[in-house]
């Protein structure tokens, strides 16, 4: 499967028009992370956006009382990282591969330029990111509410 096919089959791009996906392909490359490899490092420049093709990644926060505890695990069809989208373009958390993980990696400069140049591309990516952010926010609220602790 080439880059365009992989992109077309990823949940993040499911509703995107073919011309939008073509613009994304121009910014994409395939990458592979072995277990333990970092996709994102807390406070490092946020220069890449990832779509997971397969494998497992955990989002972590360093320096907490419980050690390097995972906040969430992500897998096939998930997106990783949105700090590249807004200043100061630095990662807020770590993301580490738990298993061998294949991703589509997008150059953030290239993406931002494509979004500026073409409002359809800008809207499609912003909408996709917003969906991811909303889902993660809802999940975080549910996790915080300690549902299973209730009688």
């Amino acid at each position: 499967m080439d880059l365009a096919d992989q992109l077309a089959h990823h949940a993040f791009c499911a509703d995107m028009a073919p011309p939008v996906r073509e613009r994304l392909v121009a910014c994409a490359r395939e990458e592979r992370f072995e277990p333990g490899a970092f996709l994102l490092r807390q406070n490092a420049p946020a220069a890449t956006f990832y779509l997971i093709l397969d494998g497992q990644v955990e989002i972590k926060i360093a320096g907490t009382a419980v050690g390097h505890a995972p906040l969430e695990t992500l897998g096939k069809d998930d997106a990783v990282g949105w700090s590249w989208f807004l200043p100061p373009h630095r990662w807020h958390f770590d993301a580490v591969a738990r298993a061998t993980t294949h991703v589509l990696a997008f150059d953030a400069d290239c993406l931002r330029q494509a979004m500026q140049a073409d409002s359809a591309v800008g809207y499609a990516i912003t909408r996709g990111l917003l969906e991811v952010v909303v889902q993660r926010l809802q999940a975080a609220r549910m996790q915080l509410s300690d549902l299973y602790g209730q009688p």
Binding site: E58, G67, A69, E72, T73, M142
Partner: peptide, 23 residues
């Protein structure tokens, strides 16, 4: 199996069960 809070030793999913429904 997914947990709300996984310790450093947990190798399963961390997150809400609805995510597993989606996937």
């Amino acid at each position: 199996v997914t947990v709300d809070r996984g310790g450093p030793a947990w190798r399963g999913h961390v997150g809400v069960v609805t995510k597993r429904v989606q996937r």
